[in-house]
Design a protein around this nucleic acid. Structure first.
Lengths: 122, 122
DNA sequence: CTAAGACCTGACACTGACGTCAGATGCAAG
DNA sequence: CTTGCATCTGACGTCAGTGTCAGGTCTTAG
């Protein structure tokens, strides 16, 4: 499949896919004329990448953990595995932050609702 | 209290405080010589702002919801209140994303642990 | 064959919350 | 008074993922 097809299947822009390749997150085979071709598997890979981006990992960090995706059996992915654990913790901390923020907003919402109830009693 | 004191108490940089003021998130009284002075309350306000930033709100968005913090009884904060609800939802969705990403990492971690156990049986 | 649309590389633009530097002024202690 | 640190304004730098444009090539339907 060509890049436009992959983009639409994975729900990202063509620009992003080229960027991922540039960053070493994605590889492609090239047709004689230089066009990128992908296998169906790449759709899932792109989705995973998107998921990690959404979780706040940078390209650099994703590159670092990819060995755990591509060759989990390699002994040389110790660093990658360590990184994986770190990122898991970071995400957990981030979730806690978001929960705190949501609580703060909930308190604000309650206070405001109370005031509103007073203003328009009916 | 002056800006350096507020910065250290709230755990942010002086630069950030000036930026918050520039964005309309924070106000200060000025001494005759032009130096900013703050009340103790501002510490909490800055912490709230930080919390909202951490939750992914932009300066612009924080400005929009601030009426709910400063004058929850004003009827004219309808837009602000609406925004507050929107952001709460956005945060909830973001939490879901992070949970999904964490699950994905957990699966990766499991797979890698399994491989590792095989490689070094002892 | 030809026109339209997909694709290529390369490059610049953008956004936003700061860091950082420069040059000037304020202020408290010795 | 002076030394040194805090503060002031203004401005430019940064980073990262992506949008977008330009100018050219490829592919495919008619």
């Amino acid at each position: 499949m060509r890049i436009g097809e992959l983009a639409s299947q994975a729900g990202v822009s063509v620009r992003s896919l080229r960027y991922y390749e540039e960053q070493g997150l994605l590889t492609s085979t090239r047709s004689p004329s230089g066009q990128r071709h992908y296998t169906d598997d790449e759709v899932e890979r792109v989705r995973l990448i998107q998921c990690l981006y959404a979780a706040g990992l940078s390209s650099r960090t994703i590159v670092e953990v990819l060995p755990c995706v591509d060759s989990p059996s390699e002994r040389n992915s110790d660093e990658a595995f360590e990184r994986l654990l770190q990122e898991r913790e970071r995400i957990s901390r981030h979730i806690d932050e978001l929960l705190q923020a949501r609580d703060a907003l909930d308190r604000l919402i309650d206070v405001n609702r109370a005031h509103r109830a007073q203003l328009t009693p009916r």
